[in-house]
Every structure is written in C-alpha cells, then in structure tokens.
Amino acid sequence: MIKKTLVLIAIVGLLMVFWPLMSNFEFSQNLSELASNYVRGSVNELNTQNVVTSVIVTYRGLDTLGEVTVLFLATVGIGFLLGKRKGKKRPASELLQTTSSFLFALIVLFGVYIFTHGHLTPGGGFQGGVVIATAFLLLMLSDVNMKFNHTILQIVESFSGAFYIVIGIVGLVLTIGFLSAEIIPLGEFGKLISAGAIPIIYSFIGLKVGSELTNIIDTMRGE
C-alpha cells in the first residue's frame, strides 16, 4: 500500500514537472539556424538528397561511430552472459522451410538496396542492416537445429568496423576532416553514384549492424 502511494506520488510529481513544459511549448515556424545550414550544406557541399543521411554520416559522424561502438559492446556483453546450450527442438513446418529458402536471397537483396540507396531514399545502413538480420532470423526459424559460423560473422563485423574508421582517417590525412564525405568526387546530385563517400560509409555501417544483430539474435536463441 505504501509502495503504491509512493509510485503515485512520483507519477504526479513527474506530471507537475512536465505540465509547464507541455502547456507553454511553442512550436517554431522556421528551421533553426543549424538545421538550415545542414539542409543547405546537404545540397551544396555533399550532393545528398536525404538530409537525415548527411546529418548522420557526415555532420554528426562521430556520434554514429560512438553508437556503433555501443552496439558492439552490447553484443559482446550478451555473448558473454549467455553461453551456448544444447538441446533439440522439433523441426519447423514444411511451408516455412520452403518459403524461407526462396525468400532469403530476396530479403538480403532488399537490405542491400536499402543501404546502398541511403543517400537518395529513406533508409540507410541501420535499416538495411536490420532487414539483413531479419533474413537470417527467417533461416533460424525454418531450420531450428542450424549452426551459424560465428567466425564469418565476426570477420564481416570487425572488417567493416575497421574500414569505417580507415575511411575516417583518410579524411584526416587528406586534411579535409574526420569522416568527411569529400575524399571521393561528389558526382551528380540525385544519381546513385554521388554524395562522395556517404554510400560507402553507410554500406559498412549496414554490414556491421547486420552482422551484430544476427549475432545478438543467434545468442538469444541459444543453440
């Protein structure tokens, strides 16, 4: 009873903190100076159609590097906590097995499409990586006793992470800036091969996120 009262008091307190924030909130009519600069820079400096991509990959590239590191650490933590276990399960239905062998390649192709077109259409490395992880999840569901080769996953994961940082350092060596997109000619606005190094960096992020999430799902599934 005391606990419930304390919880209610905490909720009411939070409500009182948030209420002035909400009732006095004024929505701005124009973009802030920083956002306007990003939108203009995305057209003039980077030739990128998707402004969100140019913010994530170039303008706030260091944050994305930190985020990928957090994802890697979480993967390591989960692998450390949940060891491997043995046990047999009943096989999946024939419908699922047939469909998944047909759909696997298509879903991986769709994931690759999403992260190579990250600078043109919505989407990018994170979404494409998740789609690829979903394809592997379908394989795991259809063949419950399947064993994944973790060495290949780790090689893909560590090499894409290393190349991501190497591209960043190339920008430093050419004295343009860490993780700059302008180490490669920018190309024509709105074409697939444009926006300098952004598609390359996003592809590496996509491979890294895809292999890490596959690793997380496989560890959570338990052998």
């Binding site: 969100v52 919505p122 994170f126 979404q127 998740v130 789609v131 979903t134």
Partner: peptide, 14 residues
C-alpha cells in the same frame, strides 16, 4: 520516414 522505417523494423520486429 527514416525514423518510421527504423521503428517498424527494429521497435516492433526485432
């Protein structure tokens, strides 16, 4: 739409 894609695949799927 970028956030929508991410939320639909990560938040509700994975």
């Amino acid at each position: 739409p970028d956030v929508a894609m991410t939320e639909a695949s990560i938040g509700s799927g994975l």
